[in-house]
Design a protein around this nucleic acid. Structure first.
Length: 433
RNA sequence: GGCUCCAUCGUCUACCGGUUAGGACAUCAGGUUUUCAUCCUGAAAAUCGGGGUUCGAUUCCCCGUGGAGUCACCA
């Protein structure tokens, strides 16, 4: 039975590195009809806060990577908070003292490091790794305050929770020999270890809380779709057998194999994440996008309007946080820079004014306000003005939006509505002297 | 510094002894489009160095070099 876990400590923010580990553990469990467990390493009581726990739950929920066993969900091998397991560690430490493999000193309990032992294991992603015990020293398993140390609690928990594969970050490689010494002292068989590479920043150093955006909350607020983030993360160290770039987490879970994971550490490339995110936004259902944006990115805009804007701007967005900026001109009359308006053509201000007046007239007479008809009228205007499409349509575009980059003109006019369109055109015409 | 891990385009990666070293992002140049974006086409861009092993090394081994991780009664 495959049983895997992630074991974050609740520090206040859910880290993207946790999501990375969660994804691979979750996928591996799914692939093998196993169980994915969330355990909280909260023995460092000072830092433990309830909201910190909450941050982890909500992040996992957002990603749709939910544990089968966890502190809130329960399970048959709990409790799943280390702070609730203190007796277990003390019990286990006592046993080791009695058996003579550990001893008490300065109020703490230390595990003896036997000389001339080679701690080695077959890492499921890296192959053989070994450490010489002569490089290692006796180490504390139970602190003088009776709390366990990280390495000891880890071993006891993984044993109690029947963890079959420990899939974790590369930074734990050097902890492994210590943990192996504990398994040995306990007379227990260690799980399979698999050490994934750590995510690096552009400077090739480990992602840092101080300098890099690592909080999953940040990714969410920035407007990354969870499926895009997961897709991106799956591509860090792993690659699709058919070299596909775009695939969902479920597909990843069908195909994952630990042997296929690279051992060198990937640099987190936001440009590629942005591109992927744009792809997911472009292909996402309009209604779903409307729901998300209304709720999280533009609650002040009536949802009905959001729904109208989405089809016009979705293929222009790389992040959902860009939505508001891309539709602001729909909502309030734009400030139009006169020079921008007059620079779109070679014509003089009076000629431009004339063209705008003709445009106003033509659209005032429009009986319907459908895209096809608006476009037909536009082409009629090209004939009577003799302007090129670019000249005329750009001028109207700027008159209506104050921008040179917008959704397609006639679709934009359709959403704006007849009254608003005419009003803005008149306003613009009035400013041209 | 000790120990450990790692090393293909700028970045993410494919290749599991024989390839014109492939793809993606980014970049650049075209095309489509009323603008932007999307989309399409093309270009430039990589095997860290030195030794082996082999008929043949990006691929296997060793040594350098470089990078990273870790060295607590933190996790």
């Amino acid at each position: 039975m495959v049983r895997v876990r992630i074991a974050p400590s609740p520090t206040g923010l859910a880290h993207v590195g946790t999501a990375y580990m969660a994804l691979f553990n979750w996928a591996f469990a799914k692939k093998n009809q196993g169980v994915f467990i969330l355990r909280l390493e909260d023995t460092d009581q000072k830092r433990h806060v309830l909201e910190a726990e909450e941050a982890i739950y909500s992040a996992l929920k957002w990603l749709n990577i939910t544990p089968d066993e966890s502190p809130v969900k329960g399970g048959s091998f709990g409790p799943y908070r280390q702070s609730e397991r203190l007796l277990r560690y003390q019990e286990a430490a006592d046993k080791l003292v009695k058996s003579g493999t550990a001893y008490s000193k300065d109020g703490a309990i230390w595990l003896k490091m036997l000389p001339n032992i080679v701690f080695k294991w077959e890492d499921a992603v890296r192959g053989k790794i070994s450490f010489d015990s002569n490089q290692l020293k006796d180490w504390v398993i139970l602190k003088s305050d009776s709390n366990p140390t990280y390495n000891f609690a880890n071993v006891i928990d993984d044993l109690d929770m029947k963890i079959s594969h420990v899939i974790r970050g590369e930074e734990h490689i050097s902890n492994t020999p210590l943990q192996l010494s504990a398994y040995q002292a306990l007379g227990q068989k260690p799980p399979v270890f698999a050490h994934l590479p750590v995510l690096r920043a552009a400077d090739h150093k480990k992602l840092s809380k101080r300098r890099d955006p690592v909080s999953l909350q940040w990714f969410r607020e920035e407007g990354y779709l969870p499926e895009a983030l997961l897709n991106f993360l799956a591509l860090q160290g792993w690659s699709h057998p058919e070299e596909k770039d775009i695939f969902l987490a479920d597909e990843f879970a069908k195909l994952i194999s630990l042997e296929r994971i690279k051992t060198s550490a990937p640099v987190f490339d936001f440009k590629k994440l942005d591109w992927l995110n744009g792809q997911y936004i472009k292909n996402k259902d309009n209604q779903e996008l409307t729901d998300i944006i209304s709720q999280e990115f533009a609650p002040e805009i009536p949802k009905e309007l959001v729904g109208k804007f989405i089809p016009l701007v979705k293929e222009r967005l790389r992040k959902l946080s860009e939505f508001k900026g891309s539709v602001d001109f729909f909502l309030k009359t734009p400030e139009i820079k006169l020079s921008l308006l007059t620079n779109q053509t070679k014509y003089s201000p009076s000629e431009i004014k004339q063209a705008l007046i003709q445009t106003i007239k033509a659209y005032e007479n429009s009986s319907t306000w459908a895209v096809a008809e608006l476009e037909a009228t536009g082409h009629y205007l090209l004939e009577i003005t003799g302007w090129t499409p670019r000249e005329l349509f750009m001028t109207i575009r700027v008159a209506l939006s104050g921008k040179t980059a917008t959704p397609p003109l006639f679709e934009m006019m359709a959403v704006l509505g007849k009254d608003e369109t005419i009003e803005r055109l008149k306003l613009a015409a009035g400013t041209v002297k």
